[in-house]
């Protein structure tokens, strides 16, 4: 039972990574930009959520508000920061992204203080169903469910709708897709909206899990997200999902068996270095 609990805890952690990494990989697939500032949208979702919840909104509505604000901010950032840089070499957008992350983090620090905010009430954390001896709280269940729904929804959208097919065509060849009437610009805006929404939701749920929202909370998660994107093969969505779950489970078991040598985050980066030494192209083929 102990191992099952560890496995489930790892899968939940992997689901959270998947929500972050999926957004990063979608953006990389379309624009070849490593969107480091994705971490700030994770934090933004958390802040909007905690402020809304502490002002009296139910947690579900607070989560929805966090997602909405992040989903709106993503396309705005694309339009103001990345769009003017699309014809520049990729490192220009990378530097802009790092600058944006620092600016947004310090913005949060100035607005909400350096020590972070906690939820006045956190019922999802202290309650949850007993699944045959395995206890999961509602936040963990929400994380797992959100990831499954997001992945299934995106999968259905990508293969089952004309807009999704147009999106994938834009990833393959934006010029040809445009000549058939697909708007690459709309696809990019949608990608930023979806990626930021996922990051915002993950940020809110991780905030609930830790009962803390603080300015730099997205950094480690985002770095791990980038590591997962590389592990899964740059721009490869299924590879990213597998790498997320693998990293979550490896971390979960590693915290028990390697805790004398490495802490949780070090385990993740150790795995990244080890895998990249073995397969520099990542576990799956990149785009």
């Amino acid at each position: 039972m102990f191992y099952v609990e560890l496995l489930i805890a790892g899968l939940v952690q992997g689901a959270m990574y998947a929500m972050m990494a999926l957004g990063l990989t979608l953006i990389y697939g379309l624009l070849r930009i490593l969107h480091i500032a994705h971490a700030a949208f994770f934090t933004l979702g958390g802040y909007v959520g905690v402020l809304a919840a502490n002002s009296g909104l139910p947690l579900g509505a607070a989560a929805a508000l966090g997602v909405l604000v992040a989903a709106t901010a993503g396309p705005l950032v694309y339009g103001t920061v990345y769009r003017p840089l699309l014809d520049k070499p990729p490192y220009v957008a990378l530097i802009a992204s790092i600058g944006l992350l620092i600016a947004m983090e310090d913005g949060f620090r100035l607005l909400f203080g350096p020590y972070g905010l906690s939820f006045a009430e956190n019922p999802w954390f202290v309650t949850g169903p007993d699944l045959g001896g395995i206890f999961l709280n509602w936040v963990q269940i929400a994380l797992g469910l959100s990831a499954v729904l997001a992945i299934a929804g995106l999968g259905l959208f990508a293969v089952g709708s004309r807009a999704g097919v147009a999106w994938r065509a834009t990833v393959d060849d934006p010029e040809m897709a445009m000549s058939f009437g697909v708007s690459p610009e709309r696809v990019r805006l949608l990608a930023f909206a979806l990626a930021s929404a996922l990051a915002g939701l993950a940020g809110f749920l991780v905030g609930l899990l830790n009962n803390l929202i603080e300015p730099g909370m997205g950094n480690i998660t985002s770095y791990k997200g980038l590591a997962i994107v590389v592990l899964g093969g740059l721009g490869n969505v299924p590879g990213t999902l597998w790498a997320s779950l693998l990293l979550g489970v490896a971390e979960s078991f590693g915290t028990i068996y390697l805790d004398k040598i490495l802490d949780r985050d070090a385990i993740a980066f150790f795995i990244l270095v080890a895998v990249l030494m073995w397969r520099p192209q990542g576990l799956a083929r990149g785009r």
Binding site: V159, R162, V165, A166, R168, A169, F180, G181
Partner: peptide
């Protein structure tokens, strides 16, 4: 799907 894009 290629044809879907062609007829977008």
């Amino acid at each position: 799907e290629n044809l879907v894009v062609g007829g977008y």
